[in-house]
Design a protein around this nucleic acid. Structure first.
Length: 146
DNA sequence: GACACATTTTGGA
DNA sequence: TCCAAAATGTGTC
């Protein structure tokens, strides 16, 4: 398995991946050098809006989690959905969706930052600032593309 | 096997 | 209108 990192604001984005499958993505303050798929560097620079043809190993399988992750990955660039909407689509409950996002093995690929609370931003790990920055960037890019 | 969770919704005061 | 508690599935201890 390959491993590498790139930067987003003050954070390092560490990616563990194979050819076209991403196994794990983490946000760390420091990271070792290494290469990441070009989709990551483009996306984080605001020059790409998806990770095609990359997929996440979290999307595989038929557990409730996998269904939730598939629903989340359908959210279009620059849009958001609520925990309740995801829960309904996946046939489960909002609490479970929150748990799934919290344990999301591959942020960015599964755009957990696009999942918000009914009446607020929701949460994000390890830092809500990352979620806010990603959403702000996506909104900006969408606006520029118009 | 119990408990913790990035929530939401509903019922009672 | 606001507060409190239940619902619910998975991973970790």
């Amino acid at each position: 398995m390959l491993s590498g990192s790139c930067s987003f604001n003050l954070w390092k984005v560490v990616v563990d991946w194979d050819e076209a499958t991403v196994h794990r993505v983490r946000f760390l303050k420091t990271a070792d050098a290494g290469s990441v798929p070009v989709q990551f560097t483009k996306f984080l620079a605001g020059k790409g809006t998806d990770f095609y043809p990359l997929t996440s190993s979290a999307l595989l399988g038929d557990s409730v989690y996998a269904r939730i992750y598939r629903e989340v990955s359908k959210i279009p660039y620059g849009k958001t959905k609520t925990y309740a909407e995801i829960a309904e689509a996946a046939g489960t409950h909002a609490r479970v969706v929150g748990n799934a996002m919290s344990r999301n093995p591959t942020p960015l690929i599964i755009p957990c930052h696009r999942v918000v609370g009914t009446d607020g931003l929701g949460g994000f790990s390890p830092d809500i600032e990352i979620k806010k920055a990603l959403l702000a960037m996506e909104k900006k890019i969408v606006k520029l593309q118009k």
